[in-house]
């Protein structure tokens, strides 16, 4: 099996009675969103989205409400049918699956966590967690074993015989997470799982989720409207606006090199201390020397490896009046970070 678990290629979703016509027109003429609405009364939900997610990655999709991120995630298990495009999951074309095959895939390969928990209020926590197994027709004994185990993974030992309404919001969402994990899926789809929670609880659950995913290494598609969350959790981040993906990249790439003003607006207030690394902001040794003159003595300067983040560089810089010399592989000097550069770097500029 290759390493790409989720593959999207030119996916479109247009809502409305005349979606087909609108799609054809969009492909032929490249209409804008507002024109589609005007001419066909159809709303463009997703516009030409393509990306790949590798095994074990946590791929965050970040966007404001209405940007189409929740619609997008529902395409992966075809809760919403795309108007056009290719969706592959584990190398299989999702669109070609028959109804029963699709159900089997949903039951075995995909676990999903919802923003509003969507627990079944009439079932105990145990039966909620075991629900995916029940759908697959597993015997009760096994359902109980698995739900007990998954509940203990999310730290809810002893709550299995309660009802969801007796649990706090955070605990309910942990039940939701346990339910998604119960069928041991290959892919986790998380649709703004923590956004309905208090900030403190959200933080707790984020930590727990990170710990869990380090343990379980599930390929995860994580939807959020909170850039901080995306940066904390994501291996890579895609930023969506109006149904299109504006930028895809690692948190550092997004923060240091926003693709346009929209993204820049978002990253502006994000602290760069932990996200930006020395090699990004350093001036290469040659150009530094060319500018400052060969004579500049760097022997008293402290040394820092090129993968140290800004936070560390600040610590180093405080102790000395000299610029910091950055060392690359094998301890070779590769660049210089002056105080000015460091301050600019913290500010966000290069």
């Amino acid at each position: 099996m290759n390493d790409i678990v989720i593959e999207l290629e030119g996916v479109w979703k247009i809502f409305g009675e005349r979606a087909g016509e609108a799609m054809a027109a969009v492909k032929a003429e490249g209409l804008a969103k507002s024109e589609v609405l005007e001419r066909f009364g159809a709303v463009v939900g997703i516009a030409d989205v393509s990306f790949n997610v590798r095994r074990g990655e946590i791929f965050c999709i970040m966007g404001l409400s209405g940007s189409g991120k929740s619609t997008l995630v529902r395409h992966l298990n075809r809760l919403i049918e795309p108007t056009a495009g290719v969706i592959k999951l584990l190398g299989q074309d999702v669109m070609s699956l028959a109804e029963s095959e699709l159900r089997a895939m949903r039951a075995q390969k995909i676990g999903m966590v919802f923003q509003h928990m969507a627990l079944l209020p009439h079932r105990s926590v145990r039966d909620n967690v075991a629900y995916p197994l029940e759908i697959r027709g597993e015997p009760k004994g096994r359902r109980w074993d698995v739900s007990q185990h998954t509940l203990s993974l999310v730290g809810l030992d002893g709550f299995e015989d309660r009802f969801p309404r007796e649990l706090s919001g955070g605990m309910q969402q942990r039940v939701g997470l346990a339910r998604a994990l119960a069928s041991d899926p290959d892919v986790l789809l998380m649709d703004e799982p923590f956004s309905a929670l208090d900030p403190l609880i959200r933080r707790q659950l984020q930590n727990q989720f990170m710990a869990l995913s380090e343990q379980l290494h599930k390929t995860t598609l994580f939807i959020t409207h909170d850039l901080d969350e995306a940066i904390r959790l994501g291996t890579r981040i895609a930023i969506m606006k109006d149904g299109r993906i504006v930028q895809i990249g690692t948190p550092e790439e997004i923060v240091t090199d926003p693709a346009d003003d929209y993204v820049r607006d978002f990253v502006q207030d994000i602290s760069k201390l932990k996200l930006v690394f020395a090699h990004t902001i350093m001036e290469p040794l040659e150009s530094y020397r060319a500018a400052a003159g060969e004579a500049k003595d760097l022997s008293e300067s402290p040394r820092a490896p090129e993968d140290s983040d800004l936070d560390r560089l600040v610590d180093v810089s405080i102790t000395t009046p000299h610029p910091i010399v950055i060392t690359g592989a094998g301890g070779r000097d590769v660049g210089v970070v002056t105080k000015d550069r460091l301050l600019r770097g913290i500010q966000g500029g290069k």
Partner: peptide, 11 residues
């Protein structure tokens, strides 16, 4: 256990 559910121990 090693997998979330695959080898859930009997309860």
């Amino acid at each position: 256990s090693e997998r979330a559910a695959g080898a859930a121990p009997a309860f």
